[in-house]
Amino acid sequence: ERLAYIADHLGFSWTELARELDFTEEQIHQIRIENPNSLQDQSHALLKYWLERDGKHATDTNLVECLTKINRMDIVHLME
């Protein structure tokens, strides 16, 4: 799945992406607590919560915009 692929590449950027996707610091902290050992797991959790929260509004376009804002064009190019 594309989101899994994106999550695998996010690394430390997942928190920046979370902020761009309008997650609160508290929500970010919660994701860290729930997935303490792996940045990859934290990234996967973030994208899963985003899909659950935004439903049909959780679009590739939205994700590309946010990834561009945090200067992760490498991931944007991987999505093309």
Rank of each mutant, 00 (worst) to 15 (best):
R2L: 15
R2G: 04
L3Y: 05
L3I: 14
A4Y: 08
A4M: 12
A4N: 11
A4G: 14
Y5W: 05
I6N: 01
I6W: 02
A7C: 15
D8T: 15
D8S: 14
D8K: 12
D8A: 14
H9P: 03
H9C: 13
H9Y: 02
H9S: 02
L10R: 00
L10K: 00
L10P: 00
G11W: 03
G11Q: 12
G11E: 08
G11P: 01
G11L: 06
F12M: 14
F12L: 08
S13Y: 03
S13G: 10
S13T: 09
W14Q: 00
W14S: 00
W14R: 00
W14C: 01
W14F: 04
T15W: 09
T15K: 15
T15N: 10
E16L: 14
E16M: 09
E16Q: 15
E16A: 10
E16P: 03
L17V: 07
L17Q: 00
L17C: 10
A18V: 01
A18T: 00
R19C: 07
R19E: 15
R19V: 07
R19F: 04
R19L: 11
R19M: 15
R19K: 15
R19I: 14
E20T: 11
E20R: 09
E20F: 07
E20H: 02
L21N: 05
L21C: 02
D22F: 10
D22M: 08
D22Y: 05
F23P: 00
F23L: 08
T24W: 02
T24M: 03
T24N: 12
T24G: 12
E26Q: 06
E26W: 06
E26Y: 06
E26A: 07
E26F: 03
Q27E: 13
Q27V: 10
I28R: 04
I28V: 09
I28L: 09
I28C: 15
I28K: 01
I28M: 09
I28A: 04
H29R: 06
H29A: 12
H29C: 08
H29G: 13
H29L: 12
H29W: 05
H29N: 06
Q30D: 04
Q30T: 11
Q30A: 08
Q30N: 06
I31P: 00
I31H: 01
R32W: 03
R32D: 08
R32T: 06
R32Y: 02
R32G: 09
I33D: 06
I33N: 04
I33R: 13
E34R: 13
E34M: 04
E34P: 01
E34A: 10
N35L: 06
N35V: 07
N35A: 08
N35K: 10
N35G: 03
N35S: 07
P36N: 15
P36F: 08
P36C: 06
P36I: 01
N37P: 03
N37K: 08
N37A: 14
N37Y: 05
S38M: 09
S38Y: 02
L39W: 10
L39V: 10
Q40G: 05
Q40D: 15
Q40E: 14
D41M: 11
D41K: 10
D41L: 10
D41G: 13
D41T: 12
Q42W: 02
Q42C: 13
H44V: 15
H44W: 05
H44C: 01
A45C: 04
A45D: 15
A45T: 15
L46W: 15
L47M: 15
K48A: 09
K48Q: 07
Y49G: 14
Y49W: 06
Y49P: 02
Y49D: 11
Y49H: 07
W50C: 09
W50N: 10
W50A: 12
W50D: 01
L51R: 08
L51V: 07
E52S: 09
E52C: 05
E52T: 12
E52L: 13
R53T: 11
R53Y: 05
R53D: 02
R53G: 06
D54Q: 06
D54W: 10
G55K: 07
K56W: 06
K56C: 15
K56P: 09
K56Q: 08
K56M: 15
K56S: 11
H57G: 11
H57N: 12
H57M: 12
H57Y: 10
H57K: 14
A58Y: 13
A58T: 07
A58H: 15
A58Q: 14
A58L: 14
T59S: 14
T59L: 10
T59M: 06
T59C: 07
T59A: 10
T59G: 07
D60T: 12
D60C: 10
D60L: 11
D60A: 08
D60Q: 11
D60V: 06
T61M: 02
T61F: 09
T61W: 06
T61E: 08
N62R: 12
N62Q: 08
N62W: 13
N62M: 13
N62T: 11
L63Y: 05
L63N: 00
L63D: 00
L63K: 01
V64W: 05
V64L: 12
V64C: 05
E65N: 03
E65T: 14
C66I: 05
C66P: 14
C66N: 07
L67G: 00
L67R: 00
L67V: 05
L67I: 04
T68H: 15
T68L: 08
T68S: 05
T68R: 08
T68V: 12
T68G: 10
T68Y: 05
K69T: 11
K69A: 12
K69F: 06
K69P: 01
K69C: 07
I70F: 01
N71S: 11
N71L: 04
N71T: 04
N71F: 02
R72P: 01
R72S: 15
M73C: 15
M73G: 05
D74V: 01
D74S: 01
D74K: 02
D74Y: 00
I75V: 15
I75R: 01
V76H: 07
V76Y: 04
V76G: 04
V76A: 07
V76N: 03
V76K: 02
V76M: 07
H77Y: 07
E80D: 03
